[in-house]
């Protein structure tokens, strides 16, 4: 899990740097502090990526085991958090193949990509103009989560990292080892897929 960054990238100093330097200098007793800092974020990421809580727990556990194993290779050329998500995304892709909860068959790209069309409409749908606090409820959150889980994994990773975890296009590209253009294409398709699921939900609800 060594970083494959261009050489001579300046070292990045952030809130985690001193902790990681201490752990890598032999203070392995401080690893628990690193776990405390990130277990909540990683568990939420796991729940967003995996359909089943047990898979999310496996993802968090395996990610931290991998971090423990590879932390000595961390070169401070990116924020630790971004490196951690890179480990988590890689772990997620490997773990998915073993999960008994993962769907037997994922959507193909053709099934995912909505037909490129601009539908004739008379007006902007009401749900697209309402304040979020009036829209949000448990059923909608569940519908959205199910739609995210229905995305093929490469698309799900991009939309979760960009729109749910808040990483930039550039950071997402580095975490997933993709080009920024590729991230943008996947993100747009994933969003269109989610939008179609939400349209279905609101057509039924409103």
């Amino acid at each position: 899990m060594a970083e494959s960054q261009p050489p001579n990238r300046p070292a990045i100093h952030d809130n985690d740097t001193e902790l990681i330097q201490a752990i890598n200098s032999g203070r392995s007793d401080l690893f628990g502090e690193l776990v405390r800092r990130y277990e909540q974020k990683l568990y939420t990421f796991g729940r967003r990526m995996c359909g089943h809580p047990a898979d999310a727990e496996d993802l968090v556990q395996e990610t931290f085991v991998n971090v423990l194993r590879y932390l000595k290779d961390f070169r401070y050329e990116t924020k630790f958090k971004n490196w951690l998500y890179r480990v988590a995304a890689s772990t997620c892709l490997k773990q998915r193949r073993r999960s008994k909860y993962a769907p037997e068959r994922e959507l193909t790209l053709e099934e995912l990509a909505p037909e490129e069309r601009v539908e004739p409409v008379a007006r902007v749908p009401e749900w697209a103009q309402m304040p979020l606090e009036k829209l949000l409820n448990e059923e909608l959150s569940r519908t959205l989560q199910e739609a995210v889980h229905a995305l093929p994994e490469p698309y799900r990773l991009v939309v979760v990292l960009r729109d749910m975890e808040g990483f930039s296009t550039e950071e997402t590209a580095r975490i997933l080892n993709l080009t920024e253009a590729n991230v943008k294409v996947r993100l747009h398709r994933a969003r269109l897929f989610l939008r179609d699921k939400l349209k279905g939900y609101f057509n039924h609800e409103m």
């Binding site: 909540q40 103009q129 909608l140 969003r191 989610l194």
Partner: peptide
């Protein structure tokens, strides 16, 4: 507008407690 609202809804997600 529908795409923008979809993105906004994605961004409202809350943490799942460990």
């Amino acid at each position: 507008q529908t795409l923008r609202q979809t993105v906004a809804l994605c961004r409202t997600g809350t943490d799942h407690p460990v």
